[in-house]
Amino acid sequence: MTHLPQLALEDVGKSFTLHLRGGVRLPVLSGLSFTVRRGECVALGGPSGTGKSSVLRMVYGNYRCDEGAIKVRDEGEWVDVASATPRRIIALRRRAMGHVSQFLRVIPRIGALDLVAAAGRDSGLDFEAADARARELLGRLNLPARLWTLPPATFSGGEQQRVNIARGLIGNHPLLLLDEPTASLDARNRAAVIGLARQRRDSGCAVLGVFHDAEVRAALADREIDLGRFTRVVAAEAV
């Protein structure tokens, strides 16, 4: 199972067109190709503004991919996120890829535990399994139990981030996308996240992440891709 490719980017390019700024075009990336195999953790590196988060978002289908292909393996089938239908991407998110974004999107009236368990149910766990796994994850991430039933809207940044991590991890997807998972965490919780991510990688999950923290990067990443090399240096096109 391990060492099989789980994610393959082929000649990916992306730019933003800002219509509200007179149609100015901001190039982000071009010609980006790499593969992530199962059981491997790849870090995206490069100076800020080189599109590290954008790559994660494109893989997750959250950003459009303008050029190239982004192939994710889903139960023996390769799905190109760049051209897949929304319905196919939703199925892919349920079964094949988990995403830990930088910010938690809270849902009114839903407590932290339910929020995490719902993500588990979305990815196919039954009610009891999702609940048990959510409790286990929040426990390992040191989220105080008194917070579990509360909606996370009023939580601190670090608390919200841990709920977000639990949501991303609960699905046991073969591909895990981590966007600065430890940004607002203290040393103890950083260690907890590293432990969880390692465990997933070692059990055969392909991990692609952006880690600002050198310590976290060193602890998790098997190799790094420097996006600086793929950043477009084209000047904004004249309108």
Binding site: H19, L20, R57, N62, Y63, R64, P86, I89
Partner: peptide, 30 residues
């Protein structure tokens, strides 16, 4: 799950909801 942006009776943009909201393409959607 999905979103369709309409203007003057026409569909301007359509796609995954979070994609349309986070990376809107059409000038009107932006």
């Amino acid at each position: 799950h999905r979103m369709m942006v309409m203007r003057r009776g026409c569909v301007i943009e359509t796609g995954l909801t979070d994609r349309v909201l986070d990376d809107p393409e059409a000038p009107y959607t932006q």
